[in-house]
Design a protein around this nucleic acid. Sequence first.
RNA 1: GGGCCUAUAGCUCAGCGUAGGUCAGAGCGCACGCCUGAUAAGCGUGAGGUCGGUGGUUCGAAUCCACCUAGGCCCA
Length: 939
Amino acid sequence: MDWKETLNLPKTDFPMKGKLPEREPEFLKFWEEIGLYERLNQRQGPVFVLHDGPPYANGHIHMGTALNKVLKDIILKSRRMMGYRAPYVPGWDCHGLPIELNVERELGVRRGELPKNEIRKNCRAYAHRFIDIQREEFRRLGVLGDWDNPYLTMTPEYEATIAREFVKFLASGQVYRRKKPVFWCTHCVTALAEAEVEYENHRSPSIYVKFPLAEDARAALPDLPKAPVSVVIWTTTPWTLPANLAVALNPEFEYVAVKWDEEILLLAEGRLSALCAELDRDLPEILCRFDPRRLEGRHARHPFYDRESLFILADYVTLEAGTGCVHIAPGHGEEDYESGLKYGLEVYSPVDDTGHFEEDMPLFGGKEIFSANEEIIEVLREKGRLLYASEIEHSYPHCWRCKKPVIFRATEQWFISMEEAGLREKALQAIERVTWIPRWGRERIRGMVEKRPDWCLSRQRAWGVPITVFVCKKCGELLREEKYYQKVLALFEKEGTDLWFEREPKELLPEGTRCPVCGNEEFRKEEDILDVWFDSGVSFAAVLERRPELAFPADLYLEGSDQHRGWFQSSLLCAVGTRGVPPYKSVLTHGFVVDGQGRKMSKSLGNVVHPQDIIKKYGAEILRLWVASEDYREDIRLSDEILKRLVEAYRKIRNTCRYLLGVLCDFEPQKHRVPWEELPEFERYLLYRLGQLIKRVRRAYEEYQFHIVVQEIHRFCVVELSALAIDINRDRLYCDHPEDRLRRATQTILYEALEALVRLMAPILSFTAEDIYQYYPFPREAESVHLLSFPEISWPEPDEEFVESWERRLLIRGEITKALEKARQETKLIRSSLEAEVLAAVPAEKRPIFADPAYWEYLAIVSSFKVVESLPEPGEKEVLWEAEEVPGLKVLVRRAPGKKCERCWQWKPEVGSLEDYPALCSRCREVVRRLKEEGRLKE
RNA sequence: GGGCCUAUAGCUCAGCGUAGGUCAGAGCGCACGCCUGAUAAGCGUGAGGUCGGUGGUUCGAAUCCACCUAGGCCCA
């Protein structure tokens, strides 16, 4: 007969292959149908608020955004299983230049050609389009959240919040107006953002200009002979010379005074030979060397105006070109501007919107700046200030629209002061009170906040929230108090901010508003819009404070490490500036996705991987597993090999669970569960190991160390379950009578393992955990695995001695396995381990551990095990093994006596001698007899 | 160029920081073999690392310090 029919083989319909790409959507639908998110969110329990940083509503999701969202999902799911109520409100950042540029491109219009609100309408539609796209893509990843009610920075309520928070800053005196240079296209007559500038080759004048020293500077260099002394600067923009206010030297360089014909010139020593080479001159005599710090605060004379130019120090001065002495015009350059602020210089920019010098400017008033270059050079020549003039071809910023060269020009802008109300100091103190994970995040953001300049809020664009400021037309006074803005804020709340651009100040201001200084009733409204970092920076006010299910401050912000400069900082400044406290209790950062070699993903390197491709090929589950398996605090590598390894790990976990489902097919926990007190030792030991797993995994989740979770779960499936629990107990599970107490005991611990595994994996392998859960052969506690809690350890902790004794036993078992392997590979004595008999000779002190030889047959999966005083001489092919790691243990492997039982495949002496079942061993005969009596067999 | 960070077997990670001296580990992959009653599964054994490099501190360093190389993020 076919004895297979009498065995308890595993049985389950749970498929071996996940077919993830096609089946995942079914689970998404299932969760949707049962209202999973809503149900989780309605539960009681302490709240855990993870505030979502809004991705930009432009383009499809990429690996970085996928990584970020999956991490958030894992965190939230794990917190829910710890008993928290953990809502998730996703958001999108909707305003800003990239969208506006794309819309202009799609519309084929140039900046300013359409009314602001026409552009804004299109931008709004554009953002909505990509929000819908990204929403579906994020959902597909299995990320659970309030996707139907996300927060958008462009809704009327949100826009009103942005304006309201700005007004708070304004009213508290932290907002001021100042000139600052920006890229400016004189052809398009508009300011340009960094992103609107392209670098092209351009031919410019290259001139060396002499600035004579004023008396105070001359006095700082007393040793020089009597002769005119000038400092030499180099510039490629002669038209900025009228705006010159300073000359910068690098405090780290050594400077020299050299004899140059009848006069004396000053420059960095490191540039002297290069300059002489360019001017084709011999090296001049060096009269003296000096530390540039001697000149700081003293003056040179402007080369053609009757005013002075301040000597300053700046470390951005290089020796790569020029003279090591840099002409500074704070109104016409970024670094010049920074230095100007430091030294209290005026942001002087005598150039109008169309690129003409102001009319009243001496010498060049009204002239177009680029064409004035020649005249300026001529004046320098006439005044004897020109050392040398030539031309140079170099990279120069051009307008991306009209392709004409752009300039740096100072215009009025709005700032939040870091100092006025102690914002910097307060922010630095707040940083100390936040938990930064990893810890270096604190140093990083602290360094940035310490050094950052005042926050420039102005953007000369259309797609954003207006800077709501009214200015008195008569005296220029700003209306700062909140009362002036209540009306317009209320309008924003209902209708959004478009109306700011359509209505007159009179319609927006409270009736009868007069300037508090001059009493005038005419006001001008600001036209600039706010930096988008302000939009997202106030999300705590628009979302955390306004949504009933959330709370301020958040427990956690989680974004890429680039956000130390971005959202972490803008949120911190906004919250500290208006609330005095940080918006988050802790901040977790992740690194960036790089390729298998650790290089960043870029189109030019051709190493970009798209989440869509992974989902299509392997499923979102594998992407989630990838996110969880890497230590995301550093750069996160992604390659084909990594994905292949993950797929293998996934299969192992899936298959192990499949086996558990199968082997538990006749197990009813209520009826069959064996209490801990009655479990055999090995089962107790396995439970101990399961307890270890639960502890480690729970701790790893608490510490956001998901790669530990994955490693532990995978290792448990491989080692504890596959190689130990299942392999050793296979005979018992298959061959013993179904109701056998020992079999039920083994099933009990496998049941505990399954229940634990499915819960522990659920936050990461969300689809698979659900899949397994739905195939449970016994009643389920809840409708979805995601409604469950993490497993608790419901059995006693064994004492150390017990654990040690089992670890010793497993070590001994390892030695036996090695001996069996030798008998298999080298002498070909056996094939299956059941063909073997093992004789063990051990020193007296190790005897107790071998007290029960039958138990060792079971543990080593052999047909016969004997403990002997001394081993016999090994016969042909027999293997003598001296243990490597268990001192004194010697093992002999030989063929097991008897014949092979056709049912359990063990070799037993009695096989062939039993009357009714000559093919079976005595154990199997008993089982079969009983099954027959009970009518469990078909025949 | 500056700030912060990373670099352990083919892959993913432990160990490194709040204790420098059995710390060179795990799982996977690979090689070889077994099983065919988890079967496009399962089990076993084995081979892989001068702990990025060079100096230094120390009786002794993957573990502390300096520099260098490669890479990442943010600035310039």
